[in-house]
Simulated scan of single mutants.
Amino acid sequence: MTTPALPLGPELTIAFAATWRETLADAVNAGGNLTLDLGEVTDFDSAGVQLLLAARRSLAERGQQLQVATASPVVRDGLQVFGLQSLLDD
Rank of each mutant, 00 (worst) to 15 (best):
A5S: 11
A5D: 02
L6A: 02
L6N: 03
P10Q: 09
P10E: 07
E11T: 12
E11G: 06
L12T: 07
I14G: 03
I14M: 11
I14W: 13
A18F: 01
W20P: 10
R21E: 13
T23H: 11
D26F: 02
V28G: 01
N29I: 00
G32F: 00
T35Q: 15
T35V: 12
T35R: 15
L36G: 00
L38N: 01
G39S: 07
G39A: 09
E40M: 14
E40F: 14
V41E: 01
V41D: 00
T42S: 13
T42Y: 09
T42C: 08
D45Q: 08
S46W: 08
A47T: 10
A47S: 15
V49N: 03
Q50W: 05
Q50S: 15
L51K: 04
L52I: 03
L52R: 02
L53Q: 11
A54I: 05
R57T: 10
R57F: 06
L59R: 03
L59S: 04
G63P: 06
Q64G: 08
L66A: 02
T70V: 00
T70K: 12
T70F: 15
A71C: 05
S72Y: 12
P73Q: 03
V74I: 09
V74N: 02
R76D: 07
R76L: 05
D77L: 13
G78D: 04
L79A: 01
L79K: 00
Q80M: 07
V81S: 05
F82K: 04
F82N: 08
L84Q: 06
Q85K: 15
Q85E: 15
Q85I: 09
S86Q: 14
